[in-house]
Design a protein around this nucleic acid. Structure first.
Lengths: 359, 359
DNA sequence: CTGAAAGCGCTTACAG
DNA sequence: CTGAAAGCGCTTACAG
């Protein structure tokens, strides 16, 4: 019962304001913007202009400004996201980006794709001037695909984990984090430690596997291939992998602890254990990776490797802004890549000392 | 080690393509767009133009197009979001909107605010032509504030739950959903049923309280004020309220079941119960409202009232597109408000029959 | 079937 | 200190 009929009146333009204030549109532009030329507008004129603008409710037309300045003041965020899972990882990233974008007066446009490989053409399409730069949320992006990105748009990638000419990459020392949490499990008395990894072949997944194996080796624990299973960084796969493992080996073969390559995998793993009647951490300790907010919503709360996702996302935005400036010739700043953040451990209730030791 | 030096060459324009094809820019525009005029371009010319455009990698400049057409082809999504909680509700909404936007060739820009009241000015600022219309994710928006929204932008609101002139509102039959899940708890043998409500005064919260009380009344169960506590639709508040209640009344006074006004509240409630050593559903049944993806990530999985959030979000986008068309005079379609979706029950493991009955 | 002109609302040199 | 002009790249009438 309520669709507005007609645009009552068109929005005020610079010319309108100029007319009202008795000056040219150009003077209004100079006065309202913080350009160097603006310094040369007299205080009196400036006040007149401000009053007229206020009265007319003047708002600059972004399209016109973008056309003249070749800047949209909007940055894109591309992510592969099926949407049938919460993807708390992305939520953290997005909020970090949006928060930072406000500081730069930028607007954030989100593009979601189903699959980097099949949708790369769409990514290119979107780089047609509607955004000034793009942040790729890229854990699943391969080097080959990254190489096909257009060259006329500045990119910054989060977790691409592999260097591509022209793209600044932001990541964390995942290998170390994986090592540290595995070592921590060992120090709690665990020996048979399972790792549910991300998709094999993905650099991030391999790094976590390496950290895991390094910690085992340092502790003199022989690597047991039956304790390394794969899940594609999703809750769904985490649950499945755990279920299949229990079916194959039986509950009596259960490891002391399970280190999952992501919080999502860990959540699936928790579910599988619960539905098999196994208790965490009494029967088995579980930990994840990322420290998304989800790690604090499971019962018990999930021990995990913390990556400062918000900070990393904010940094991505900052670096992108710098690159956009330099792209437009405003600066010559160069940004080193990759930028690596430190991981830390967040030990919580899902992990405990082994009974033999604690009891 | 990699910041690109200079824009190698400016992007091809319509004029460039025209020059290459030996026609005017206007002919290129007509040929490339699906305008009525385009029908009058000969097949031969059209082919020439297509080839030239392809060869030059022509991509229309969105800013120029937006300026000429007065359409940005982008829609805004505004949400109040502190970001210190996952807000799975918003994640569902956003993915529904993005999915639908692709079908309409629209781009989605996300604006987050801390507080409708203090940030309303920012909402207005953002309605300056950079978006063609706005979807308000508005559970916390009051009628008074909604009334101050600018009149020159088409709005559609999700869960505003209160009619405002000029705004189409999309909601669900929450009162009924709250009634149904409460009645369902009763039918499982529960008598002392607690309700942790959303913020008092919010229409959505009051509706759920009403449904809860109606079901109790129908079952001849007297309303017990000590079993109605408030939490502001957040996990944090859900945990706090539950904790405080246990402190105040003691575990022995625990109700049979707890109906939380949102999945987020329920998650906090689950956490509080777990940290108090109480088991769900053995000691107490718990259910939520929304059926966000989070309801399936808790252990046990959360029984809840399902609102089809994705569908509702998609509908919001569709309605908004219709309103934008009519706003631009392309159509005179009118959309009734509110649009009400049906809720359904999703019973899961967090709820069980009372022992007295089942045992 | 195709083109020349004007205009969308802003900014950026260039004059004065 | 301020203005007239040209241009950003597109679309929309209007001619022919």
């Amino acid at each position: 019962m309520n669709t507005r009929k007609k645009k009552s009146t068109r929005a005020a333009t610079l010319a309108d304001v100029g007319r009202a204030a008795g000056v040219s549109a150009m003077a209004v532009s100079a006065a309202l913007n913080e350009t160097k030329t603006s310094a040369r507008i007299s205080e009196k004129t400036r006040a007149k202009i401000a009053k007229a603008a206020e009265k007319l409710g003047y708002r600059p037309n972004v399209a016109a400004r973008a056309l003249a300045k070749r800047r949209m003041n909007t940055i894109g965020v591309s992510v592969v996201w099926e949407g049938d899972e919460p993807n708390v990882y992305f939520v953290e990233i997005l909020s970090g980006i949006i928060e930072a974008s406000a500081r730069f007066g930028q607007t954030v446009t989100v593009f979601t794709f189903h699959d980097w490989k099949n949708d790369m053409e769409k990514v290119r399409e979107v780089c047609d001037g509607r955004i000034d730069g793009m942040i790729l949320v890229a854990p699943l992006l391969t080097k080959e695909l990254a190489a096909t990105l257009p060259r006329h748009t500045p990119f910054v990638a989060l977790h691409a984990n592999t260097e591509t000419e022209g793209i600044v990459n932001i990541e964390s020392d995942e290998e170390q984090g994986a090592h540290d949490i595995t070592a921590s499990l060992v120090s709690l008395g665990h020996r048979r430690i399972m790792h549910i990894s991300g998709g094999r072949g993905l650099v991030g997944a391999e790094r976590r596997i390496n950290g895991y194996r390094r910690a085992l080796a340092e502790a003199g624990i022989e690597f047991d291939p039956s304790l390394l299973v794969e899940a594609n960084f999703t809750m769904y796969e985490g649950r499945n992998s755990m279920m299949e493992w229990i079916d194959a080996y039986g509950k009596d073969k259960l490891p002391d602890a399970i280190f999952c390559a992501s919080d999502s995998i860990a959540m699936g793993c928790l579910e599988a254990l619960a539905s098999s009647g196994l208790r965490v951490p009494d029967d088995v300790s579980v930990c994840g990776f990322d420290d998304t907010i989800a790690a604090r919503t499971t019962v018990p709360q999930l021990a995990t490797v913390r990556q400062p996702l918000r900070l990393m996302a904010a940094r991505a935005l900052e670096v992108l802004m710098k690159r956009i400036e330099s792209y437009h010739g405003k600066s010559q700043d160069t940004v080193a890549s990759p930028i690596v953040f430190k991981t830390t451990l967040a030990m919580r209730g899902s992990v405990t000392r082994t009974k033999k030791i604690s009891g």
